[in-house]
Design a protein around this nucleic acid. Structure first.
Length: 281
DNA sequence: GTCCATGTTCTTTA
DNA sequence: CTAAAGAACATGGA
């Protein structure tokens, strides 16, 4: 479930609660969720302190006190939560980290970071000293319109599929691409290199507006997503097009359409997002 | 049994 | 080289 706003919410809820805490014990019940396959993740993490937690694209990046890093990708059904150690361990929980408080802090009950992912499209990547953003595009929240224009001008692909490409732009997924294109008034099949400069500017603004609002509402929960405290998001109630096929557009009452692009369901308003003849593929 | 799913990556085809 | 389409991964819900 996790795109940029959901991952940001997980990071925001996790950060104040485990920064400076020490990983006292590691339980990895499925080694095949770890990449690279041969690495001794428990050995790398045990007795290390969490220096910081950040988001890069859809990745939750942990930096340890020795400068090494690893990240968790939530895939489609992944959850990264902080729970009391005595809480029942749900099925498909692949990694548990016992967390000990920083010296001087009154000892509370034992807390665990838990990674659960039934479908296992997500996983844990050990980076060591490597950068977390290799081969990833820029962050949409700080993206300049000129940079987006430069990137889109170089491809003939449909804007919908291009925006899903994490090498072009990092963090958008199926929900927020559809929502951003609606706000920008751009048809999902519009060819990138044929977008007007004004449209690219509108798209850049729309992405930021949509993502910020989604973060403010703690992400979208369609089925599985919860933050690190186990709470669902609320932005799904404000979706303008995603998962609203057949329902009236919130702007003009036209029926929202659903098509398939790049193998992903794509939702748009045919009236608010007209297929300008010059920009169709 | 069927179809679908918030993601990524690989293969095939043009 | 570009790109689109399809499949694959694995599980669960409607």
């Amino acid at each position: 479930m996790p795109e940029l706003p959901e991952v940001q919410t997980v990071v925001d809820t996790l950060r104040p609660r485990i920064t400076g805490w020490r990983i006292t014990e590691v339980r990895l019940s499925r080694t095949d969720v770890v990449t690279p396959g041969g690495c001794d993740l428990p050995g790398h993490l045990r007795n290390r302190t969490v220096r910081s937690i950040d988001r890069r694209g859809k990745r939750v990046v942990f930096t340890l006190d020795d400068g090494n890093r690893f990240y968790v990708h939530l895939g489609m059904t992944g959850r990264l939560t902080l729970e009391p150690a005595e809480a029942e361990v749900a099925p498909h929980t692949h990694l548990l980290l016992d967390m000990g408080p920083p010296p001087g802090l009154a000892i509370r009950r034992l807390q665990q970071v838990r990674f659960r992912d039934p479908r296992r499209f997500g996983g844990v990547w050990w980076l060591g000293g490597a950068d977390a953003g290799e081969n990833m595009g820029p962050e949409p929240l700080t993206l300049r319109s000129s940079e987006l224009l430069r990137r889109l001008a170089g491809t003939t692909r449909a804007v919908k599929t291009a925006l899903l490409d994490q090498r072009l732009l990092a963090g958008l997924g199926n929900i927020y691409v559809d929502e951003s294109l609606f706000v920008a008034g751009i048809h999902p099949q519009a060819r990138c290199d044929r977008l007007a400069v004004e449209q690219v500017r509108a798209l850049c603004r729309a992405m930021k507006q949509v993502l910020r609002r989604a973060i403010r509402h703690r992400g979208s929960t369609l089925r599985d997503y919860v933050d690190a405290e186990g709470k669902a998001g609320g932005f799904q109630r404000l979706h303008r097009v995603y998962d609203r096929a057949g329902q009236p557009c919130r702007n003009c009452r036209t029926r929202i359409e659903r098509i398939v692009l790049g193998g992903r369901s794509t939702h748009f308003c045919p009236r608010c997002q007209p297929p300008s003849p010059a920009s169709r593929g």
